[in-house]
Design a protein around this nucleic acid. Structure first.
Lengths: 204, 204
DNA sequence: ATGAAAGGTGAGTGATTAATCGCTTTCTTT
DNA sequence: AAAGAAAGCGATTAATCACTCACCTTTCAT
């Protein structure tokens, strides 16, 4: 017999993300997934009820990865500045390890075909921005970031920088090392968040 | 008889962009386009050889709009700071007027099905970043921007901020006024580009 | 031993979709 | 007026795709 249900399910999700990276969501057919897993196309439906259920499971997996990223960062005992820096690195490492992630998240098949999955993605983004804004607020209170920065506003820009970089990376077919550009992104962010010398001298 | 060739062609491109905004690229079938234009599906092919040719023409139209945006900004006699600010506003106004733009540019059908169109998009992005870096370099030389900023690096972050904002706007179904968030984006950018007081005092 | 359940297969089915084709109508040119 | 081109139409075609179904094989609990 074949592999047990749960194991096969995980395998299908894994291969689905691989395929999304290689061929895009449009070519992400049940036949293509089955081929890569090494089973018949019809067998796919022994493990998932519909094709959308596969995409849903993949999105859920991605979400859990990103949430664990956020949690890991929130728990960290280091300074807000370091936590933000680490979050960028962790995020880009995750994405570069799973290139199918941006392809899936930005695909319109996901957004306009199944409102349920869209909601899930929106949820992740909202939570992400909230967490980042908390870190920034903390940094401002500690006097590590300039005190005229708006936490929510800056958090939105933080996420935009990440998303924008990832989109460009995806459009240019993953042809440059994204981790390196993450450092440049951090420098830019820091130049905006760093307090001026006068503030710095301020004893509070 | 119907409308003349060129006129109908433009109409098809226009309606295609509208449809991309409403239904996404996946639902952008020749039937859907024909319905919106008010002609038979087969008539579409009197004006375009293939469906991809329609997408190609739409991309070309978008590119020309963005290029004219860049040119307009470059020609402007105002300061680099004001030009950057205006570029953001003009870009977001263009995008908000044509919501199909991001949907088309980020669709994987475009990227992985026709390498030719992908190249065109990459070209636009590269040119865009180059132009922005030129403005930034100018601003640094004039002492209007902090002199430790790297023009290329900052240009990449500029584009990432814009793209990231547009992606989020698209994911959240255009549900917030993007022009307003453009201002917030500009504030963030400026806080990173503005020279420190000491530099400011520096007579050069 | 046996029979049910799990995992797997190949051969379909119906829906969707880009593209073709033969034909008609309308306008322009000679 | 006749000819030809341009713009349009309906019907059709071939391909693709998600999903179903009847059947097979292995495993394992009774």
């Amino acid at each position: 017999m074949g592999k047990p249900h749960e194991e096969r399910k995980e395998e299908i999700i894994r291969k689905t993300l691989e395929l999304a990276a290689d061929k895009g969501v449009t070519r992400l057919t049940t036949q293509a997934i089955a081929d890569r897993v090494g089973i018949a196309q019809s067998t796919i439906f022994k493990h998932f009820k519909t094709r959308d259920a596969i995409l849903g499971a993949a999105i859920k997996w991605i979400s859990s990865q990103i949430f664990s990223l956020l949690e890991q960062t929130s728990k960290e005992s280091s300074s807000p500045r370091e936590r933000l820096h680490h979050l960028i690195n962790r995020h880009l490492t995750l994405v570069s390890k799973h290139k199918g992630l941006p392809r899936l998240l930005f695909s319109d098949r996901l957004h306009l075909e199944s409102p349920h999955l869209k909601k899930a993605v929106q949820q992740v983004m909202s939570t992400y921005m909230k967490r980042v804004s908390e870190i920034i607020r903390e940094g401002i209170e500690e006097g590590q970031f300039r005190n005229d920065a708006d936490p929510e506003e800056t958090a939105r820009c933080f996420v935009a920088l990440l998303q924008g970089l990832i989109v460009r990376w995806s459009i240019f077919d993953f042809s440059f090392p994204i981790e390196k550009e993450g450092e440049e992104l951090w420098r830019f962010l820091w130049s905006s968040l760093a307090p001026s010398q006068e503030e710095d001298r301020d004893p509070l």
